[in-house]
Amino acid sequence: MESTNNLEKFQTIIDADTKIEPKDWMPEDYRKHLIRQISQHAHSEVIGMQPEGNWITRAPSLRAKLILLAKIQDEAGHGLYLYSACETLGISREELIDQLHTGKAKYSSIFNYPAVTWADIGAIGWLVDGAAIVNQISLQRTSYGPYSRAMIRICKEESFHQRQGYEIMGKLALGTPEQKEMAQDALNRWWWPSLMMFGPHDSDSPHSGKAMTWRIKRESNDVLRQRFIDKTVQQAEVIGLKIPDDKLKWNEAKGVYEHGEINWEEFNQVINGNGPLNKIRLANHISAHENGAWVREAANAYAAKQKKEVLVA
């Protein structure tokens, strides 16, 4: 029963910018919204390991391979921080994984695009992680304590990800004409999907209203997207690459870049399962989970045996 009294008290805590903690009273919709958002975020970190994992054995140098391994390990860690935060809301890890496998829970649609060249690893770090950082910095101030703490930890680790990606792009852009072309091609393919990562325009965003009132989200999709564009355009110029948007133009009066229209039809197609790799990404996750069953079984048997030995002793 959600009495007005509880709701009012809850909103007072939110408005005072005090965090909500797991055992505090919260409206059911707040809990549901958080579970959806945090689990989607966690799944994205984990599925996001796939396009990069694809390049571990083909990294062009030992240095590049070590960096890529460390980055992917971080992504796994970020997934785990977020799963833990989500579990404080009363949902189990098992249920979360199940929701991913049945399609009830989503992950960021960006990871349904393929990483076809080494430059894609650069573009993913620079653009995809770059967009994620803009979002995550804002989410450090989210109203739910465990989510906020996970975000703070993630942001600390994430900036190396973006820098390593930008370094790859910069090196390729300064290389042979073929290498520069490879970098430009990766930017061309990842630019628009990166902008889509921020979600629909504010006017079409179905979950935004309450999320802002409850301070789960602190800034709107369009505000965050604009911040990402404004940062990134200059970075592209420095390494001599061109953002693939003919309508991109500096608006002196507003102090922001104007940009061309995003292809929302493509966005919806990918979200609804028709992206280039939706089926493969999910199938990989399911098979990794199923193939790991014997490990979990063995670990549980070992734990049970240890307990028994303690009892006998």
Binding site: E87, S92, R93, E94, I97, A293, R296, E297, A299, N300, A303
Partner: peptide, 11 residues
């Protein structure tokens, strides 16, 4: 404990 339901304990 069934295998499917086996994510270990929380620490």
């Amino acid at each position: 404990m069934s295998t499917k339901d086996s994510q270990g304990q929380l620490w």
